[in-house]
Design a binder for these strands. Sequence first.
DNA 1: GAGCACTGC
Length: 694
Amino acid sequence: MADMKVMASPNHYLKNKKRPAVVNFHENSTEFVSPKKQKRNIPGIISADGSVNANRPMALIQERRKLPIFAVRSKLLEEIQKNPILIVIGETGCGKTTQIPQFIHEAKLARNSMIAITQPRRVAAVSLSKRVANEMGVSIGETVGYTIRFEDVTSPSTKLKYMTDGMLFREAMLDELLMRYSVIILDEAHERSVNTDVLFGIVKKAQKLRSENSKPPLKVIIMSATMDVDHFSKYFNNAKVLYLEGRQYPVKVLNAKQPQSDYLQSCLSTIFQIHLEEPAGDILVFLTGQDEIESMVHTVRLAGKECKNVLRVFPLYSSMPMHMMENIFRPSPPNERKVILSTNVAETSLTIPGIKYVVDSGHVKARVYQPSTGLDVLRVQKVSQEQSWQRTGRAGRESAGTCYRVFTNEQFNSLPKFTTPEILRCNLASVMLQLLHLGIDAYSFDFMDKPSQEALDAAVSQLKLLGAIESKETRKLTPLGSKMAQFPLDPRLSKILLSSKAYNCTEEILTVVSMLSAESVFINALNNRDEAIACHKKFFSSEGDHITLLNVFHAFKSFKSQKKQCSENYLNYRNLLFATEIRKQLAQICQQNDIPLSTCGQNTDMVRKCLVTGYFMNVAELQRDKKYIMVESKQRVRIHPSSVLHKTLPHYILFSEVVQTSQCYIRQLSIVDEDVLNEIASDYFRQHRLGSKD
DNA sequence: GAGCACTGC
């Protein structure tokens, strides 16, 4: 399918369609057809009887019994007992995540040790554990608990432990056999997060080693909505697959009759088709990014004013402030309809009540890592079939619904079946370092989908440059490398943190590294932009963004009333608190590694020098034409307009990030002296520098 | 003078 077009930017879209939607959408309207076979095949549904354990709130027992999974309880337990590895496929709402751990616990299959249930997201781990504790009539943190970063709500009596997959990976680094657990359930496996993918291999190995060394056995259960069943089963030694019936309401799928040239225009006309012709129910539209969404909100609001029935329009994306999200979750009053224009946050992370109609643009903005250049590229691309089904499902959470796909059925069939797992499109340096710490070489690791040679080689090169491994061939961890692996950070940042001891600036580096790890602390107020920028300018440092972040953090610490003063200064309080938590955690690991919390005071040159120890490969040099070029890849880059160094022309700049959007931009910058580069990374710099060839 | 989807330790 070669019909990928250059996407019109939202602004362009507005310019060309001054009076869109209502005025001309009828003649322009997207026609939909309902394809004959648009239901997924669910092979066979197991059946059996179920018995109930009492002593719990009656209402919850009733609700539990109603779950389809309850009817197959004993059959399920039988299979769990029989198979060392079991794959359980069940749609949203089948209750697998809350019930299966309880079944195992009640049947005492866990032999009095723990059952771990992993989740890709923190909120899910917390809310699921609370739900299960409630069902079991126990307080959270006792029999049922959860562990996420910064929060461990478990006790010695905990038997059911909900946790993030990243947390279990960290635990595996301390005990590769995971002896605390008799059962490990990897949930949401279809999402294929990097951590889940790595855990597949670790859990499989732990199971094998435990059985070979006559240790207590480890039971493994892989749970997922839909997935590439054959691929999974084959990887897990041809494991048995069980299918569970879901409790999803039916969703009618409508496809566009004709291919659409402009998905934004098609989404727009579809919104009004629904609003004018369909019964009550809110609309969820999946688009790609903040800009696109904001301009579409504007357009829909304008056009909506001409409608008889009220249409309330809301944007939704993850970087949106909390208070702006609240309206979205409020139910619509009668005679009003809500339309939510969202990124993929609404696919998995957030569930919005009242949605009856989904409009799927068929597009998503995705981050793709290029190992050849080490560049992160953000681009709009087509969704996978799996992702499209996920969006479709959002229309059937509370009642029957309809999903409008703004592309044809033929186009749908030519989409890739599954989303490329993240492990195949990310920088592997961090994963590789952590695996090495576990004594595992990524080249021979049993990945379900093995990353390319190129991606592995790129990671090895980076670790070698940082001094984490002895050589590219043996890949043996150096003492420095072992220390680096202990930090929950990108290896470059771990290196910087460890170097700070020599520069006597650990306090400052802890702050910079934590601030870089958190989300942006600056609020870009769209309506009071000038005022926001004026506030931010108080923190600006002529040395660059890293020192600016340091200034912001110091100011934050000095605030008497942090919440109030953050909002006065257009700073994100929540993200600053998060940075504070990260800092606390990192400081603790520093102390465990005999790194005193030294400070360089006002001498911020030390901070910038120290940054060079991990970021020396991230340097850009000014050219005669006043443009920048990256020292390593020789690729042209520009200073991102959000940087304090924008519109300045230092000769050498060190950067933390490079992202390609409309152009190639570097972000989070510091000015760096040539002398410092020669002093700290002389070999590297001599090999790569351009200066000599005029 | 442009704009970052989403997670996680």
